[in-house]
């Protein structure tokens, strides 16, 4: 039963974060790129305010998979790096924590570009 609750919470919180994004798409003239920037910055902010951490403990991937989770990752990375290395950590912490995701997107992007061909829309 426990896993049903874990997955249910991930579904619910993840779904809600996406539903909010949809309201931005339909009700404002914000471009997708602006919405994504907003989500990441919001994630950093909420994490800094100590709100996002508890949400991650509650919803797991439901909070880490949306892009606010990416912001949270950057913020926690900086927190840890500043604690370990002081001021220098402010510059290294974010990118270090996000390295896996960004590098994966770059490498899979490169491989996709090499292996596949672009196609028409239907």
């Amino acid at each position: 039963m426990e896993w049903v609750i874990t997955f249910g919470k991930a579904f619910l919180v993840g779904g809600l974060l996406c539903a909010i994004g949809q309201i931005f798409i339909d009700k404002t003239k914000l471009t997708p790129a602006r919405i994504l920037v907003g989500y990441v910055v919001m994630g950093v902010l909420l994490s800094a305010l100590g709100v996002y951490g508890p949400l991650v403990s509650f919803a797991g991937a439901g909070a880490t998979v949306p892009l606010t989770g990416f912001g949270h990752l950057l913020a926690t990375g900086v927190q840890k790096a500043v604690a370990e290395r002081g001021l220098l950590g402010a510059l290294t912490g974010g990118l270090t924590a996000a390295a896996a995701g960004i590098t994966a997107a770059m490498i899979f992007g490169l491989l996709t570009a090499l292996l596949f061909t672009p196609g028409d829309k239907s």
Partner: peptide, 20 residues
């Protein structure tokens, strides 16, 4: 051409955007 216009004026064809 739909595809040449999209990539010049809007987004890459494989980009997951929603058209208003």
């Amino acid at each position: 051409h739909f595809c040449s216009a999209e990539r010049q004026f809007r987004f890459p064809l494989e980009y997951g955007g929603q058209r208003p």
